[in-house]
Write a protein that binds this DNA or RNA. Structure first.
Length: 685
RNA sequence: GGCUAGGUAGCUCAGCUGGUUAGAGCACGGCACUCAUAAUGCCGGGGUCGAGGGUUCGAGUCCCUCCCUAGCCA
C-alpha cells in the first residue's frame, strides 16, 4: 500500500540569491522525495517564494521598483537555480498568490472565531520621517549593557545581551538615519500558550530528532508566550480582513504558503485537498527546515494548523548550517557561494553527492571543505562507481554487445541486493551519509571482484571471450544495483545509464532483485567527469586568484553535451556582461603604511590591509598625495591582478584612481574610497 | 549571559545502552596490474579520542569545571 506523502522545504526569501545553505536543504529534501517515489510511494514536493515583509518593501524602494517586480524577478532567479541543481518540485508557488491570500484569511478567521486571537497595545520604535514602525533589525544603537556601538535593536553581537530597541542608547533608524520615537499601536496576538498540552502530545508522536526535542523542552521550560502576528502599514503583505491598516506578519502567512502552494498543485492535478490537510488524515506531511527556524515549525505552525482544524505535520526535519572550510559562510571571506556561481563552474551532481554524503538527519553543522569535496567526489563517483561500468563495457562490446544469459556469481549479486532494505531505512531516516558509506563499501567489493577475475587476461584467449563477457555482465549488474541505490542523489547519471542499460533497470527500488541478463546494451556513455580542482578554487572568490597560467588547456574539461542552458547572451560591441565584471576581485583595503619610493618620483609604496592578509602595492600617486595623508584611509584595489615585478619590488595589485587630462595636462589623480563602516577586505560589487 | 548541538588520525567522518591492541574513506609511502576517465587491487606508517579533575575492576563512551565552534533566546 503506497504511502501518500506531502513534502516541503523552507521557502526562500525574495530579497537575495540562493546560496549553498538553500541548496543543501533543497538537496536533502529532493533526495528524500526521489527516494520515496522510487520506492513506489505517492510523494509530492511543494515549495514557494517567500515574498512579504519589511525587507522586501524597503529593498524594492531602494531599487526603485515595486515589490511585485522584485519578487517576480527573485522567483525567476530562484526557480532557475533550483532547476540547475535538479530539484524536482511538483509545485513552486508564491506566498503572494490568490491561494495563499485565501488560506491565510481562512486560517485567521477560524482562529479568531475560536477565541485564540487577542488584541493589545504594543509600544514600538517609529520612524517619523519614513512614516513607519521599525522592525528591531532596522534600529541600531549602543548596547545598554556593554556599550558596544552600532548594535542591532534586538541583541548585541559583542556581549550577547538581548533587549528591545527602546533599551538601546542613541538609537538610529537605518531607514532614514533619524532618531526613532516610541509609539503605541494595537497588535493582534496568537495565544500560543493555549496549545501547550496539544503540542506536548504532538511532539511525542511526531518524528522529531532527539536534539530537536531537547530544544523544544527548553522552550516549554521558558513558557510559551503569545505571538504577535500583525504589523502596521506600510507593509508589503496581506491586509488583515477585520483590521484595516494592519497586515499579517510575514511569518504568519509564510508557512501557510505550503498550503497555498499545495492548493495550486491540487487545482492543476485535481487532487483532493482534504485528503492532505483535514484534521485526522493518514496522509503524511513532512517539513525540511534549517535549525534557525525550528521555533516557527515546531510550535507556531502545528498550533496554528491545529487551531484552524487542520492536520499537524508528521515530521519536522531539522538540518544544521553549512560552513565552508570550517567557517560560517561569509561575504567578506568570499565563502558566500551562490547557487548561480557554482552552476556557472560545475555540474550539479558532484555537489548533490557531497552534501548527501555528509547529511545524517541530525542538526549538527555540515562543513564544505573544498579540497575534500574534490577528492571525495572524484574518488567515489568516478574512481569507484563509474569505473566499474567503464572498465567492463569494452568486454561486452567486443563480445557482440549483449549481456550474458546467466550470472557467474549469483551469491555475490545477492550480497549486493540483500542490504536494500537496510539502505532504504537509512534514506528514510535521512541518514544519507550512512547509506552512501554502505554503497561505497559495495563499490569497493565490485572493483575487487573485477580485479580477481581479470577479464582482460581471460579475453586474450579468443576461445574465452564469452567468459570475459560473463565477468563483465556480473560487474555491470553490481554497478546497476549500486546506481539504483544512488539514483535519488544522482538523477542525471542514472538517466544517462538508463540510456545504456535500459529504462527498466532503474525504474523501481525493488527492481534490483532481478539481474539484467541477455539484453543488448547501447553504446557506453560517459557517465560522469572529474571535477577540476582549479575550477573548484574559483568558487571562493576571495582566494587571491593565482596569476592566470599562460595558455593552459581550458580549465573546464570539454564535457560532452554540457546540459547547461544559458548561452552567453549576445552583447553590443564594447559592452561586457556581468560575468566579465565578476572576474574583477575588487576589495576595500585599508592603508597601513605609505612611503615614497627611492628612485621614483611618481610612485608610493603602500602596505594594504585586506582583512585576512596584507599586500604591497606600488601606486603612481606621489604627485597628488603625501604618504602621511594616506595612512588609515580606505582605498579600492583590484585584488586578483597578477603580481607584477617592478624595479623597486613586487606590486601585488592596483589601487583605483580617477584621473583626467585637459590639453595634455594632468588635472590630478583622485583615489576612490569607501564610506564609513567599511571593513578591510570587503568585496566590492 | 542562558539554553541546544558539536569538538575522535593531515582532511572529512563512523564509533549502539562504558569492556579485548580506537575504525573507514581520502591524502601520504611501498608493491602489483594495465580492462578502466593517471582509474583499480594488495601492504604500510600515522591518533595521550578539545583541556583538566572525578566515578569505576575498566571511559572516546558516565559526572563536574573550563576552552573552542555553530544556532536559538520568539
Amino acid at each position: 500500500m503506497p504511502r501518500q506523502i506531502l513534502v516541503t522545504s523552507a521557502l526562500p526569501y525574495a530579497n537575495g540569491p540562493l546560496h549553498f545553505g538553500h541548496i543543501i536543504e533543497a538537496v536533502q529534501t529532493d533526495v528524500w522525495v526521489r527516494f520515496q517515489k522510487l520506492r513506489g510511494n505517492d510523494c509530492l514536493y511543494v515549495c514557494a517564494e517567500d515574498t512579504h515583509g519589511t525587507p522586501i518593501m524597503i529593498r524594492a524602494q531602494q531599487d526603485g521598483i515595486t515589490p511585485e517586480q522584485l519578487i517576480a524577478a527573485s522567483a525567476e532567479a530562484h526557480s532557475r537555480d533550483y532547476a540547475g541543481f535538479l530539484i524536482d518540485f511538483d509545485q513552486f508557488h508564491s506566498t503572494h498568490s490568490a491561494e495563499n491570500k485565501a488560506w491565510t484569511d481562512t486560517l485567521y478567521t477560524t482562529l479568531r472565531d475560536r477565541g485564540v486571537i487577542t488584541r493589545r497595545s504594543v509600544r514600538q520604535s517609529y520612524d517619523e520621517q519614513a512614516g513607519m514602525f521599525l522592525p528591531d533589525r532596522y534600529v541600531r544603537g549602543t548596547c545598554p549593557r556593554c556599550s558596544a556601538a552600532d548594535q542591532y535593536g534586538d541583541s548585541c553581537e559583542a556581549c550577547g545581551a538581548t533587549y528591545s530597541p527602546a533599551d538601546l542608547k542613541d538609537p538610529v533608524s537605518t531607514v532614514t538615519g533619524t532618531t526613532p520615537v516610541l509609539r503605541d499601536s494595537d497588535h493582534l496576538f496568537f495565544k500560543l500558550g493555549d496549545f501547550e498540552t496539544m503540542l506536548r502530545d504532538w511532539l511525542k508522536t511526531s518524528g522529531l530528532h532527539e536534539s530537536v526535542r531537547a530544544k523544544l523542552g527548553e522552550w516549554f521550560e521558558a513558557g510559551l508566550k503569545d505571538w504577535d502576528i500583525s504589523r502596521d502599514k506600510p507593509y508589503f503583505g496581506f491586509e488583515i480582513p477585520d483590521a484595516p491598516g494592519k497586515y499579517f506578519y510575514v511569518w504568519f502567512d509564510a508557512p501557510i504558503g505550503y498550503i497555498g502552494s499545495f492548493a495550486a498543485l491540487a487545482a492543476r492535478r485535481g487532487l483532493d485537498f482534504d485528503r492532505y490537510w483535514r484534521s485526522e488524515t493518514e496522509t503524511e506531511l513532512h517539513h525540511f527546515i534549517g535549525k534557525d527556524i525550528g521555533y516557527f515549525h515546531t510550535l507556531f505552525w502545528p498550533a496554528v494548523l491545529h487551531g484552524a482544524g487542520l492536520r499537524r505535520p508528521t515530521g519536522v526535519h531539522v538540518h544544521g548550517f553549512l560552513t565552508v572550510d570550517g567557517h560560517k559562510m561569509s561575504k567578506s571571506r568570499g565563502t558566500f557561494i551562490t547557487a548561480q556561481r557554482y552552476l556557472e563552474l560545475l555540474p550539479p551532481e558532484p555537489l548533490r553527492y557531497y552534501f548527501a554524503a555528509k547529511l545524517t538527519g541530525g542538526i549538527e553543522d555540515i562543513d564544505l571543505n573544498l579540497e575534500d569535496f574534490t577528492a571525495r567526489v572524484n574518488s567515489d563517483i568516478v574512481g569507484k562507481l563509474v569505473n566499474i561500468a567503464s572498465r567492463c563495457a569494452p568486454f561486452i562490446e567486443r563480445a557482440g554487445g549483449h549481456l550474458s544469459e546467466t550470472l557467474p556469481d549469483h551469491a555475490l549479486f545477492v550480497s549486493f541486493t540483500e542490504p536494500r532494505e537496510r539502505i532504504a531505512q537509512l534514506y528514510e531516516t535521512r541518514d544519507y551519509a550512512a547509506a552512501i558509506r554502505e554503497v561505497m563499501h559495495l563499490a569497493d567489493k565490485a572493483n575487487q571482484y573485477v580485479d580477481q577475475q581479470k577479464p582482460w587476461i581471460v579475453a586474450k584467449d579468443p576461445a574465452r571471450v564469452d567468459e570475459a563477457r560473463a565477468i563483465a555482465t556480473q560487474a555491470i549488474n553490481l554497478f546497476r544495483v549500486l546506481l539504483v541505490y544512488l539514483a535519488p542523489v544522482l538523477p542525471r547519471i542514472t538517466q544517462t545509464a538508463a540510456g545504456w542499460l535500459g529504462e527498466r533497470a532503474f525504474a523501481h527500488w525493488d527492481a534490483v532483485q532481478e539481474p539484467l541478463l541477455g539484453s543488448a546494451l547501447g553504446k557506453y556513455p560517459q557517465l560522469a567527469t572529474r571535477v577540476d580542482p582549479a575550477v573548484v578554487k574559483q568558487l571562493v572568490a576571495s582566494a587571491p586568484t593565482p596569476a592566470p597560467t599562460v595558455a593552459t588547456a581550458p580549465v573546464k574539461p570539454a564535457k560532452a553535451a554540457a546540459p547547461k542552458a544559458a548561452p552567453a547572451p549576445t552583447l553590443e560591441p564594447g559592452m561586457i556582461g556581468i560575468d566579465d565584471f565578476a572576474k574583477l576581485d575588487l576589495r576595500a583595503a585599508k592603508v597601513l603604511e605609505a612611503s615614497r619610493v627611492e628612485g621614483s618620483d611618481k610612485l608610493l609604496c603602500l602596505k594594504l590591509d585586506l582583512g585576512d592578509h596584507q599586500r604591497q602595492v606600488f601606486s603612481g600617486i606621489s604627485a597628488s598625495y603625501a604618504p602621511e595623508q594616506l595612512v588609515g584611509r580606505f582605498v579600492v584595489m583590484i585584488a586578483n591582478l597578477a603580481p607584477r615585478k617592478m624595479r623597486f619590488g613586487i606590486s601585488e595589485g592596483m589601487v583605483l584612481c580617477a584621473s583626467g587630462k585637459a590639453d595634455g595636462v594632468s588635472e590630478g589623480v583622485f583615489l576612490l574610497s569607501a564610506d564609513s563602516g567599511v571593513q578591510p577586505g570587503m568585496k566590492i560589487s
